[in-house]
Design a protein around this nucleic acid. Structure first.
Lengths: 158, 158
DNA sequence: GTTGACCTTATACTTAGGTATAAGGTGTAG
DNA sequence: CTACACCTTATACCTAAGTATAAGGTCAAC
């Protein structure tokens, strides 16, 4: 029987994360002391351990919730885990592909900048963002030929 | 001189996006009609066109704001653009590398699942999430040997 | 009793880039 | 005048996964 602080230290989680998991239904409410303090039992800790492992494998909390619901009713299906991990791997492949496409588009612009730098003095007007003619037509000005960056949820600041 | 609706159609932006860009300081406030309607002039549209192009190249709005501040004072420096695009490409490389590492970790687990499925009936307890022994020690239970998924800001649902 | 560590609940906030909603005002054609 | 399209501002909301903050209550050592 462990209280929140002990559990959070053992699992490397923030106590608030434990409350959060309970709030979103990922964890059932554990027993309580007379004072209202949570008392986690070993199966609770096993469940939390499962959660942290699945997170490390890239499963979302929603995925994990699904799997845990399956487990609650019966033995955890290897097929279900396989399906979700396969989906993750496929999504990794897609993202890599998109990133490579985008990089392939950026590299010529980089080279263009480099050439421009080599030929002119520092401070020269950049050629990458071509100046459009004064807008006199109804033609949309956005450039759809560039890969749509917004397809990637991807932290540019790392 | 164009009003919000016209500008948004020409640039493929939502009118609310125009208000948003002004609110966050990315766009200076354009002129107004006597009724308070915005009137965008060609240099305004050029600025917005620059913004949409830079976004398509993967620059964040903060990056774009920086560049535009440079441009406001003088000619846009090719060096500044090059630096930012290079940083983007480097970040793409890092993310691809991390994704490949994660994939390399997931594949053996997938194979393990596959073997387990081949050898046993559907519904067999999954072996990927090994059952931990009952928690009797102060040893943290999280598994730091797996790649830290949270380093990647990466949409798992696509 | 006091103090400090720990526990509780509820809610706001973080990140980036919007976007929806609400409550108005304006312009023009019929 | 009416109706509808368009404009305005302000604020809430969205995404996922926490995390910070506030305002308490509890426990045990001194």
């Amino acid at each position: 029987m462990f209280q929140v602080g002990e559990v959070s230290r053992r699992l490397g989680l923030n106590p608030q994360t434990l409350y959060f998991y309970e709030r979103i239904g990922l964890m059932p409410s554990p027993k309580r002391t007379a004072a209202g303090y949570r008392l986690y039992e070993p199966p609770d800790l096993e469940r939390l351990s499962f959660i942290t492992q699945a997170k490390a494998l890239g499963l979302s909390l929603d995925d994990i919730k699904d799997l845990l619901m399956l487990q609650d009713g019966q033995q955890l299906s290897c097929q279900e885990v396989y399906d979700r991990l396969l989906k993750k791997v496929q999504h990794i492949d897609e993202t890599i592909s998109k990133l490579q496409t985008l990089k392939a588009q950026l590299n010529p612009l980089l080279e263009q900048c480099q050439q421009s730098l080599a030929q002119t003095q520092i401070g020269q007007q950049c050629v990458v963002f071509q100046q459009h003619p004064l807008v006199t037509s109804a033609e949309p000005l956005h450039n759809p030929s560039l890969h749509n960056w917004e397809d990637l949820n991807y932290d540019t600041q790392g």
